[in-house]
Structure formats: structure tokens, C-alpha cells
Write a protein that binds this DNA or RNA. Structure first.
Length: 254
DNA sequence: AACATCGCCAACCGCCGTGAG
DNA sequence: CCTCACGGCGGTTGGCGATGT
């Protein structure tokens, strides 16, 4: 048996939203805030499925949406993020303020795929189109680890692993030196790493966008030195990263 | 002008993860 | 534990305007 439907389909509208429906939804959310999408349609006087209301709000009506054409910088950021994350549109959208996962997904499928094809790059693998199929060059795994002995302050954290491959096998068009794991730091039993030698650019700089307003380290890669504003951690994919962990909790609280 | 095809994108569908009971 | 409701996500569809024939 499948799950029961999320709403009474027989009594719900489908298809394009009308101006009146939009107005009702906006007015209701302004008055009561987001949440409890299941009961929202009835409370707001809408003949819509709760999911449909949520989607309409998130993808179209939310006041903080950017709308309009993607910039060249956004294009390149999407491409690089996609090469790292794959079709994780919500994660990619998280790095593009004012853009939704649906918008980025559509934009990818209609514009960026073609753009990469024109460059001779396979949009699925980010490798040259004429290159024979090979093993994936880089595999990145995210592993939720819980109850790790040493992780006193984190209830959950992410371990990212990047498998190394010879440089000459990498796609020349992409900077695969990018890493989404917390930068490797040597920890010697006898000689713990001193805070002042922890050198690492923020994620935006790692993507080659040193001049971006999203840069959190105020550092260009070329400059080669780092002055972390907060020695207890730094920004990684929108998450607070400490020496050994990604702080999910603080990001969720924001 | 009429019809066919293409491209875009809003919206839907179904699955999955999570948390409450 | 187990079940179930809910929110969230990614893949897909369908309507509609633009463009080509």
C-alpha cells in the first residue's frame, strides 16, 4: 500500500495559479508565517494541495527571490558546484542567494547543459565529450558520523573524502584541485598544529571567486596567506566548519 | 495565415528522511 | 521499536509563447 494522498485531489485546483490565489497565499503567510502546509490551504481559503502552496511560495512568491537573468558569475558558480555536488539542486541553490533549486535546475537543463556541450564538455561528468569513458575521476562521499568519541561538541558532522587521481587525467577546464572537505591539516601527537599556521581560503575563494561578496575570508588565493577571522572555524558550503567537524546545528539555527 | 516544432519554466509526482506519538 | 504524517527533494510533465516552414 502506498502512502495516502497529501490532500483531497477531487477538491483541489491544479495547474497555473491565478492572481487571486497568489494574493490569498501571500496574505495568509504574511499574517501567519510559513509552516503547516497541510492545513494552510483550508485556512487561507485556497482549493490547493498544501504541497502546491509550498512550492508556489518557495519558487515564485517569496519576497527575497532575485528573479531575472543569471549573471556570468552565477553561471560559473553553478557549473563548479555541479561538478562537485552533482544534481543536488537544493545544495547548489543554497550557495546562490535569491535563487531556488527549481530555478537552477531549469536553468541548468535549458542553458548550462548546452553551454557545456558547446565547450566540448559532458555536462553529466564535466569531462571532455570525446574522451573515452573511464572510471569517475573523483568520488566525494558524505558520511554522517554519530557518536564519535572525539566529537564532544557536535552531534553530527560530515566526513568528506576525495580520492586522488593523477593530474594529467583531470579535465583541463575545471579546477579539480577544488576540495569540499575541510582542508587537510597535519596533527602530530607530539606537535599539535598551531592556530596561526592554519592556512585555508574560504569556499568561495576555492571556487576562484576571490572578489565575490560572498567571500568570508577576505583573501585572494593568489595572496597565499590567510587570516581567518574566527580561529574556531570557517565557512564551508554554508556550514560552520571547525578543525574536525561541520557544525550543522549552528547553520540550522540561522 | 496556418500549422509544426522548439524551448522555457511553472507545476506536479512520487520517493525519502525525519520526528512525533 | 514501529507507524504515520509531514516537509523537502529531484525528476518529469504540460502549457504556452517564440520561431521556423
Amino acid at each position: 500500500m502506498g502512502r495516502s494522498p497529501c490532500c483531497e485531489k477531487a477538491h483541489t485546483n491544479k495547474g497555473a495559479w491565478t492572481k487571486e490565489e497568489d494574493d490569498r497565499l501571500i496574505a495568509y503567510i504574511r499574517a501567519h508565517g510559513e509552516g503547516c502546509w497541510r492545513s494552510l490551504p483550508k485556512a487561507a481559503g485556497l482549493l490547493r494541495c498544501g504541497k502546491s502552496c509550498r512550492l508556489r511560495w518557495i519558487n515564485y512568491l517569496r519576497p527575497d527571490l532575485k528573479r531575472g537573468n543569471f549573471t556570468e558569475e552565477e553561471d560559473e558558480l553553478i557549473i563548479k558546484l555541479h561538478s562537485l555536488l552533482g544534481n543536488k539542486w537544493s545544495l547548489i541553490a543554497g550557495r546562490l542567494p535569491g535563487r531556488t533549486d527549481n530555478e537552477i535546475k531549469n536553468y541548468w537543463n535549458t542553458h548550462i547543459r548546452r553551454k557545456l556541450m558547446n565547450r566540448g564538455i559532458d555536462p553529466a561528468t564535466h569531462r571532455p565529450l570525446n574522451e573515452p569513458a573511464q572510471e569517475a575521476i573523483t568520488s566525494i562521499s558524505f558520511t554522517n558520523v554519530k557518536e564519535e568519541k572525539d566529537m564532544v561538541n557536535a552531534s553530527a558532522f560530515v566526513v568528506c573524502k576525495e580520492e586522488k587521481i593523477p593530474l594529467e587525467e583531470r579535465c583541463p577546464d575545471l579546477n579539480l584541485e577544488l576540495r569540499i572537505s575541510p582542508p587537510y591539516q597535519h596533527h602530530s601527537e607530539s606537535e599539535p598544529l598551531k592556530p596561526e599556521v592554519k592556512i585555508s581560503p574560504c569556499f568561495v575563494c576555492s571556487l576562484g571567486l576571490q572578489n565575490s561578496k560572498d567571500c568570508s575570508c577576505n583573501l585572494g588565493i593568489s595572496n597565499g596567506t590567510s587570516s581567518r577571522s574566527d580561529s574556531s572555524g570557517y565557512d564551508f558550503l554554508g556550514l560552520k566548519v571547525t578543525d574536525t567537524s561541520v557544525d550543522y546545528i549552528s547553520s540550522e539555527m540561522e
